[in-house]
Amino acid sequence: MAEIPAEDIDRFVRLMGPDPDETLIEMDEYAAAEGFPHVGPEVGATLRLLARMTDAKRIFEFGSGYGYSAYWFAQALPEDGEIILTEVDRDELELARHYLSKGGFDALARYELGDALETIERYDGPFDVVLIDHQKHRYLEAFDAVREDVPVGGVIVADNAITAGPIEFDKLVAVATGAERDDLNKFTRGIADYLQTVKEDLAFETVVLPIGNGIAVSYRVQ
């Protein structure tokens, strides 16, 4: 396949995906205006699809921002479903509440202000889908904290598996090919360690999808 600019691929994927509703369009406009690094509609639609495919009833998010990914997830939940949002920024969490309420999903959501790794300790599984999208150097901690709460047929998704701000993609590639690197910043190291761990974990089958900033999808097989 001839080389196609990444932005053209992103646009094509967006065009071929489901249309966002009015609230999601407003949320996208907010992200553009404020420079907020949300997952975007390509990843959002994929998250919703994964929730549908796993027949998800309970979802946990490590890092929810202003509720963009949670809004996509909520569209796939049944009336008795539940999604737990975690966020350290009070204003962002209140904005998430505003948007989810506007979309009619407030009854499905639980809003937790504070560190996601502390919040997860107060919840028991199972969780059909887990999204890891908080501090990159703590991804592995999040995986370890929730691993046993994801049943066979459940999914763990990690955002920024390819890029984000300080993540050095060329060094991620080097680590993936087996090279020893001691010059990784803590964020790149966090992503590299996470990806290596889920790849080697026989209980999960993992693929990295090159949409948005890259998402690692780990499906529990045993």
Rank of each mutant, 00 (worst) to 15 (best):
E180T: 13
E205M: 07
V221S: 08
D182Y: 11
Q196C: 07
A158P: 10
F187I: 06
G212N: 04
D170H: 13
V173T: 13
T163V: 14
V198M: 08
R220L: 02
D193T: 08
P210N: 07
L209P: 06
D193K: 11
D183Q: 12
Q196L: 08
G212I: 00
D170N: 15
D193C: 07
L184I: 10
G154L: 00
I215A: 01
D201F: 03
I162Y: 12
A164W: 14
E205G: 05
E180K: 11
V217P: 01
T197C: 11
K199N: 04
K199Y: 05
L209R: 09
K171G: 07
Q196G: 12
L172Q: 04
Y194D: 06
I156W: 03
F169N: 14
A179E: 15
D170W: 09
D183K: 14
L172T: 01
A164Q: 14
E200N: 13
V173S: 14
I156R: 03
I215M: 09
I191R: 00
N160G: 10
L184A: 10
S218G: 05
V217H: 03
I211N: 06
E205T: 05
I167A: 08
L202I: 04
V207D: 06
G154A: 00
V175A: 13
E168A: 14
P166C: 10
G165D: 12
V221D: 05
V157E: 10
L209V: 05
E180M: 11
V155R: 03
I211E: 05
D159G: 00
V155P: 01
R220Q: 07
V175H: 12
G214Y: 05
V221M: 07
R181K: 15
N213G: 07
V221I: 10
P210D: 06
S218H: 01
V208C: 12
F187Q: 15
I191L: 09
P210R: 06
T206D: 02
F204C: 02
V157I: 14
R220C: 06
T163D: 15
P166E: 13
K171W: 07
A203R: 08
L184G: 07
E168W: 08
G178S: 09
E180R: 13
V155L: 04
E168R: 15
G154H: 00
R181H: 14
D201I: 01
